[in-house]
Design a binder for these strands. Structure first.
Lengths: 229, 229
DNA sequence: CCAAAAGTGTTCACGGTACACCCATGC
DNA sequence: GCATGGGTGTACCGTGAACACTTTTGG
């Protein structure tokens, strides 16, 4: 036990709230804990920050280790430091949220996770620690940010239809949107590239596929443009 | 050295970016460090998180101890955890930002601060650690939030004139606003209470004083109202 | 009576919203 | 040919933006 300090230090962890879109439904990626405390309880993927990695790196590492999810949009959410949030003692956690296309990521449990799974927001199991609270903060942040930043695209495949995009907005914001107005608005921003492909294997007229023009967004952003939907 | 752990732990600090309005100018509260590293260099008030206090409490305590500032609007900003941000080793800091009315707070240096002072944003001294970067993030956040939340009032005295309010917005957002439109907009929200007092000791027509109706805002907020200016 | 800032109304353009029908495709 | 979702245009209204003059007060 070679690690001694002049003053006591809280332990530092990271936790990840991973959102994924499953068709029409927004889901969350949870792991089932193998170890105490809260063994067998579902929880956010996360773990201790190591000395040789930044916080962002720690979040990415834990996510990959415990769930197999890699290369995701990740953003810091909030740092939770209440005194009683972990029965083992003082643990401060830096929470992140991530957005992924659910079908791009085959999840698999590993290290100290005995199981991994996607859960609908209205169907969450009982959670370890204060993870329920962290999730609530993440949902609030996602809702707030979706309208003012082009982050919804992270939840979709690279090529998507306008209806998929609209459905995503409706799912996250939990309100219906007018199809014509939605299309006019999003197309008028000129941030979507119309591909020459259409949907396959649908039992009706196939919809056109679009890509998000990230380059163009970055450029417009520099010129003071701000995304609003 | 009685504090021993199985694994190494980063040290955990809090730092506060305190904004204060000095007439027309937005200023920042800095302390001059007494101790190494960066002795005599200017820095954000802050310090180590203790085991028996939450992060918020730590921020408030450090602020009071080092600068004498108390009872402020305080909000968590971001957590900085790069590997090389402190020459003493791995230190993660949870940054906060605070808004105060500069004239309400007589600052005084104490504990490990050898000096305290207000600095205009365009007139900041060379800063310790990555504090310059933290400040940049705080400014960006303040600008972003000012238009979508009624936090500007925290920078003003309890009773203020509409011109003072407008000047504050102009100072923070760094853009001129039309007087008539500004007044129409802010008054139409019905969040200001017109007092029966006017300015004193001015060499021209005295302006009416207003108060922000916090009660009413909280109520409207519950009903889905959102502040936009 | 002059300087300085307070206070106030109207017009115009644009963007958000509401709304309904035809089109293409697979079965 | 029919069911299913894809795709489109227009009218109205409200809000944001532009803009200039009168009023009050102290010195």
């Amino acid at each position: 036990m070679p690690y001694t300090y002049d003053y006591p230090r809280p332990a530092l962890t990271v936790d990840c709230v991973v959102f994924g879109l499953d068709g029409q439904v927004l889901k969350l990626l949870l792991i089932q804990r193998q170890l105490e405390p809260f063994a067998h309880r579902w929880a956010l993927p996360g773990g201790f920050v190591q000395m040789d990695e930044s916080l962002d790196d720690a979040a990415l590492r834990e996510l990959a280790e415990e769930t197999g999810v890699q290369r995701v949009y990740l953003e810091q959410l909030y740092t939770f430091g209440e005194l009683d949030r972990d029965p083992r003692g003082r643990v401060v956690t830096v929470a992140y949220y991530a957005l992924v296309n659910l079908f791009d990521h085959v999840v698999r449990a590993a290290t100290d996770a005995e199981n991994v799974g996607w859960f609908g927001l209205d169907d969450l199991p009982k959670l370890a620690f204060d993870h329920r609270k962290i999730i609530d903060v993440a949902i609030e942040r996602l809702r707030g940010k979706l309208r003012y930043a082009p982050i919804g695209f992270e939840l979709l495949p690279k090529k998507f239809t306008l209806t998929e995009l609209q459905t995503l907005y409706e799912a996250v914001l939990d309100q219906e949107l007018d199809k014509r107005n939605f299309r006019k608005k999003i197309l008028s921003m000129e941030l979507l590239i119309e591909t020459d492909e259409v949907q396959k294997d649908v039992a009706h007229r196939a919809a056109r596929l679009y890509r998000f023009d990230r380059q163009r967004y970055k450029q417009l952003e520099k010129q003071g443009f701000s995304f609003v939907l």
